[in-house]
């Protein structure tokens, strides 16, 4: 796909990039639940790196931040969505 210049999806190829690295963030705050919520699904699960494109370093920090927020009741452990 990359090598073929006439590939129809050539210009649609999206390069994933870590949002935290791009913003130059050094520490992910557990109090910032609005940001953390963007990296969890509607069940409250942390999204994998392959979905969000977060760098390994920031994914580790993110995990810790989410778990701290959960402990203090700022974020849910499980959120039951209606089926």
């Amino acid at each position: 796909m990359i090598k073929n210049p006439s590939h129809p999806k050539k210009n649609q190829r999206k390069v994933k990039q870590c949002k935290f690295t791009r913003a130059g963030l050094e520490y992910i705050d557990y109090k910032d639940t609005e940001t953390l919520q963007r990296f969890t699904n509607d069940q409250g699960k942390i999204l994998p790196r392959r979905v969000t494109g977060t760098s390994a370093r920031h994914q580790r920090q993110l995990t810790i931040a989410v778990k701290r927020a959960r402990f203090l009741g700022l974020m849910p452990y499980v959120a039951d969505n209606l089926r």
Partner: peptide, 28 residues
């Protein structure tokens, strides 16, 4: 974390969603 705290005090924490998908228009 201390450096982050200093940013927080100055209200200069970078917004990670400020640069929203601008590479969509980029051509490689």
């Amino acid at each position: 974390m201390l450096r982050h705290r200093e940013l927080q005090k100055k209200n200069e924490v970078p917004d990670i969603f400020a640069i929203e998908d601008e590479e969509d228009n980029e051509e490689d």
